[in-house]
Design a protein around this nucleic acid. Structure first.
Lengths: 193, 193
DNA sequence: ATTAACTGCTACAGTGCAGTGACATATAGC
DNA sequence: GCTATATGTCACTGCACTGTAGCAGTTAAT
């Protein structure tokens, strides 16, 4: 699930255990920062089973660790969109596939992007993904899957929120089952009656 | 909107300007803590237009300030539930009224209760309110307003999320208009088809 | 007008966390 | 087994925030 492609090339040849540690720090960090954005590096390191100093050997600063975590989420989101083929696939298929993918992303990288939007590069990538989804939602509306006349931006705001909610609140559901619930609620709630 | 009934009785006779400052600190604090839960007392005081020391004259510690803010939100929620008459009023009426009230609460006290659930007293009050709403949702289901067979807890989780979303994301809508959107989405999404 | 309450300002100690350096130890790959 | 690489540990500095103290100035209520 997690990859290390955002790690500088000079670290490409790290040992297997080092790579494991790196991944543990990233995913554990994502989980802890989602629960408490002020989580200290010491607590993240402890939870990930490594020494605080080890984290600093990988990441020059707290800021860099956060950047790596958000980078992981951003990349996972971009892969999720690509895999769903939002532009070409039939809207009903693409919607379900996208939702299922994002739910998996939300569970692995539960961090909230909102805290990183100050960074222009992050914001640009997030906006690009958002535009992609917005375009898809317009296509869904044109094809009659969603009804028109809804408040501006309501569908765009509701969809991520539904996915976020089901990701956190319904851990007993598999991503596919959770996607069923989200899609059903969305299509009934915003669909052509 | 904001009251001071949670302030100890010994402060009941504060001067008018002092009461204004107190209210400013509470509402500004709620707004800033919602945006950044680690906001310092100094920054909250500055934003509220008072000295940091003044905050400490009202609240013995940061913890107490937070408690007062969450208390304000809790109380506002309880008033919102009472006013909606969830047990007696016709379900459609009660639902809209409740949603509209909570949206107003969310905009005045946008803090997330999740951070205070460690406190048993807070948790108990939140749970009591939640039970009240859950009972109402069951009544709505019995009367055919919501359909049965939905995943366990889905309606209970979705409703607050919809209200939260519309409170933050659609500031241009009045509470009544925002309530229209939420109720419409909820009833179509979870209603008897 | 007088008084009591309230506020602003400066300075201070205590604390926890970020980030760094040096050195000892452990381990994967040869 | 040897070596390079990665990790653990201790010890330190710097910084931001919490919480406290005293004093001077301001303002609401009588």
């Amino acid at each position: 699930m997690a990859d290390t492609s955002h790690v500088p090339a000079t670290l490409g040849a790290v040992r297997a255990d080092a790579a494991r540690n790196l991944e543990a720090v990233l995913t554990t960090g994502a989980r802890m920062l989602a629960a408490d954005p002020a989580a200290s590096i010491a607590s993240i390191a402890a939870e990930a089973g490594v020494d605080r100093r080890t984290v600093y050997r990988r990441f020059a600063s707290r800021e860099e660790l956060l950047a790596a975590i958000y980078e992981s989420r951003l990349e996972a989101i971009e892969r999720a969109i690509e895999d769903a083929r939002l532009r070409e696939a039939p809207v009903a298929v693409a919607l379900h596939r996208y939702v299922e993918n994002i739910i998996a992303v939300n569970r692995t990288w539960p961090v909230d992007l909102a805290r990183m939007l100050a960074d222009d590069a992050v914001r640009a990538r997030r906006d690009a993904s958002s535009r992609e989804v917005d375009a898809f939602l317009r296509r869904a509306t044109d094809q009659g899957l969603l009804r028109s006349g809804l408040p501006e931006g309501w569908a765009s705001a509701l969809l991520p929120q539904l996915m976020h909610l089901v990701s956190r609140q319904m851990p007993q559901l598999s991503p596919a089952q959770a996607a069923d619930v989200v899609v059903d609620t969305l299509l009934r709630g915003l669909g052509t009656s």
